[in-house]
Design a protein around this nucleic acid. Structure first.
Lengths: 340, 340
DNA sequence: CATGTCCTTGACAACGTTGTCATCGGACTC
DNA sequence: GAGTCCGATGACAACGTTGTCAAGGACATG
C-alpha cells in the first residue's frame, strides 16, 4: 500500500499525515512529546497504509547489534529429543521477544559449518549448537567477536564456550549396572559412531560397569557406528544369531532402542530379552513390556541452555560454564526381565 | 575485531587493505573487475578482521525486500506432527538458502496475532500457518501488501490464501466405517474443541459413517472439547463406566489416541476394545496391539506447503490453491478387534 | 600526438530508520 | 515590553551496505 509498490515506509506515512518522518518515528516508538492531534493523524495514516515497523532498519540505525534472533542448530528437529529441546528454548526466549532460527544438522559437519556462517551473516544474537563436528575451532573467530555460543548435549572441543550436557558415562554405567544386577552377563551394547562424544562416553560407561565389578565386558556384543533405528534392528538380528546370543541389550540412544525392540518383536523375544535404553521418548511407557530407560530431563536441559545463552547475550562475561545434568533410571519393565 | 568494539565492517576492511569500501563490497560479493593483487589484499584483510557480511544491511540497501526468512507458526514444535512438518519445510527451504523462524501457538489465538505481527516486523518473505484463530481477517492487510501465506492442516477463514489440508471428513468416515464393518455399533468418538475446524470435520465424518448406513450415531459416546492426552484418558474412563460402554473408540487425533490407550490399559481392556486413531505417530506400530490409524502423509503435506509458499515468494500470483490430500487407512491390529 | 577504448577504482547517494541538534512559536517572568 | 524558557517539530547525518556514475590510467589507433 505504498506509493511505489512494496510496503509503506515511514516516508509514506509522513507524507499522508503531513508531518516529518521523525515525527512518525516518534509516534511509532511511542515516545513522549508529540501533540495529541498530530499523534492521531499519524496513527490514522499508519492504519490506512498498513504500515509495519521495519525491525532490521531500526536495529541497523540503532547500532545495537541486537537482532532479537537466536540460532538453534540441532541434530534433527523431527526427532523427539531435538524437538523438545527446541520447544523449551522457544519458551524461554519468547518472554524477551527473541525468535528462534532452527535447523537440522543430521550429523553432517559441512552443514554445521555453512549454517553457522549463514546465521552469523544474519547477525543472530547467540547460538545453541548440538554439534556434528569433532572440533569447533572454526568458531573461535566468532566467539572472539563476541558471539555467545552454548553447546548442548555434547561438549565443545577447541573453543571456549558454555555447555549443557548429561552425565553420559555415569548414565550408561547405571543402566548397564541395572542389567548386571538382574544377573545378565551377555549384554549387547549399541552405540552410534565413536566420533560422537556422547556415543563414546556411553560405551565407556557400559565398559566401566563391567570392570568395576571385576568382569570383562563382552566385546563381541558391542556394536558401534550404528546410524539410526534400521541399523540397530539389523545389528540386533545378527547378534541374536550368535552361538552365545545376548540375554539383554543396552541401547545407547532412543532410535537404537526402537530398532532393538523391532528386532526382538520379529524373533518373538520381547518378553525374554531385557532392554534398557538411553533417552526417554513419548510412548516408551506404553510399549509391552514398557521400556526401562535412562532419562535425560530435556526440559531442564533446554531451560539451563537458554538461561546461559540469554545471560551471555545480556553481557555476562564470566568464564565458560560446564553444566552437567544427572540422568535418572526409569524402571518400567523391559529392563527387569531376568536372564533365561 | 573492529576498531570500535563490535564486528568489523567493510569500512574497517577497506582501511586495512588500503582500498575504498566499494572495492571491498566487490570482493565480498565476488564481482568481476577487481585486479588480482587488490582482491588478495582485501581477502587478507577480511580474514585478519574476521569480517562477516551483514545480510540485513545488504538486503536493506538492495531494496529487495527478500530477507531469506520464512515464518512457520505451528501448534507445538515438540508434537510429532508439527515437528515433522517443520522438518520437511526446512528441507525444502534449505536449497534456496532460506531459513525458518518457527514458533508454537498452543491453540492460543492471541499468540498467533502477536507472532504474525512480530514476523511481519522482521520482514519474513512468507508465512506458513497452522492457525489457532477461528478467522484470519486480520491477515488481509498483510496479504494485500504482498505477503505470501500458506495455511496448513486447517483452511483459512476470511482471507484468501493457499492451503494444504487433508480430507478430514472422509478420513474420519473411513476410520469409523472400518469399525462399523467389524460389527461395532457402540463406538466412542473423541475430538478436540468444535472451534477447531479439523476437529469439527472429523466428528462430522464419524457421524456420516453412521448415517450413510442408515444408522443413528451414538451421541452419548461422542465427546468433544478434549485438550490433550490426559483429557482423553479421563473421558474414556468415564465412558467405560457407562451401562452400555463403547466396544470401540475412534480417536480424532494422535494425542487423544494415546490417552485412550492409557485408559484401556488401566482397565485391562486394550485387547478387547478396538481403537482407530486419526494421525499416525512414531512407534504406533510397536504398541500392543499395534494401533490402526488414519495416516496423513506429513512429508507430502510439508513438501506441498513449501512448494506453494516458495512459488508465491517467486512471484506466482494465481488465485489461491486449495490442496487437499487423501489420508490412508493403516491396518495394524487395534482396529480389527471384534465387539465382545 | 591527439583521440578513443577498456579496465579498475572510488565518490556519492540511497535503502528505512533514529539520535542529535536546531528552530519556532507561545507562555511566562520581572 | 523585552527577555527567558519550554514544548513540539523537523533537518540532517548516520547505521552497513550496494547501484550509479565518473575519474583516472594503460593502451591502441589514426
Amino acid at each position: 500500500m505504498s506509493e511505489r509498490g512494496g510496503r509503506a515506509t515511514m516516508r509514506d506515512v509522513a507524507a499522508l499525515a503531513g508531518v516529518s518522518i521523525k515525527t512518525v518515528s516518534r509516534v511509532v516508538n511511542a515516545e513522549v512529546g508529540v501533540a495529541d492531534p498530530v499523534r492521531e493523524r499519524v496513527q490514522e495514516a499508519v492504519a490506512r497504509l498498513d504500515y509495519r515497523h521495519h525491525l532490521g532498519a531500526s536495529n541497523l540505525r540503532r547500532g545495537t547489534t541486537r537482532s532479537g534472533l537466536i540460532g538453534a542448530l540441532l541434530q534433527d528437529v523431527s526427532n523427539s529429543f531435538s524437538a523438545a529441546l527446541l520447544r523449551s528454548l522457544e519458551d524461554a526466549a519468547r518472554s524477551r521477544g527473541t525468535a528462534i532460527l532452527s535447523a537440522s544438522l543430521d550429523e553432517e559437519p559441512d552443514r554445521e559449518l555453512s549454517l553457522v556462517h549463514d546465521l552469523v551473516t544474519r547477525r543472530v544474537d547467540g547460538l545453541v549448537i548440538m554439534p556434528s563436528t569433532l572440533r569447533q575451532d572454526y568458531l573461535t573467530a566468532e566467539v572472539r567477536a563476541g558471539l555467545p555460543v552454548v553447546f548442548v548435549d555434547r561438549e565443545p572441543q577447541g573453543v571456549a564456550a558454555d555447555s549443557v550436557t548429561v552425565e553420559n558415562l555415569e548414565g550408561a554405567q547405571m543402566g548397564t549396572e541395572h542389567l548386571l544386577a538382574q544377573g545378565h552377563r551377555r549384554i549387547a551394547c549399541l552405540t552410534d559412531l565413536p566420533d560422537i562424544s556422547t556415543a563414546r562416553r556411553r560405551r565407556a560407561g557400559f565398559v566401566q560397569a563391567f570392570t568395576e565389578r571385576g568382569q570383562r565386558p563382552p566385546e563381541r556384543l558391542m556394536v558401534s557406528g550404528l546410524r539410526g533405528a534400521a541399523a540397530a534392528e539389523e545389528a540386533v538380528l545378527q547378534l541374536l544369531d550368535l552361538d552365545q546370543p545376548p540375554t539383554a541389550v543396552f541401547a545407547g540412544r532412543n532410535d537404537l532402542a526402537q530398532g532393538t525392540i523391532r528386532a526382538l518383536r520379529q524373533r518373538g523375544l520381547s518378553r525374554s530379552v531385557a532392554v534398557v535404553g538411553f533417552d526417554d521418548f513419548p510412548l516408551a511407557d506404553l510399549l509391552t513390556p514398557a521400556l526401562t530407560v535412562i532419562r535425560q530431563d530435556v526440559g531442564r536441559i533446554g531451560r539451563r541452555t537458554a538461561e546461559l545463552l540469554l545471560a551471555r547475550i545480556d553481557g555476562d562475561t564470566s568464564p565458560p560454564h560446564r553444566v552437567v545434568i544427572a540422568p535418572t533410571l526409569v524402571v518400567r519393565g523391559s529392563g527387569e526381565i531376568p536372564p533365561a
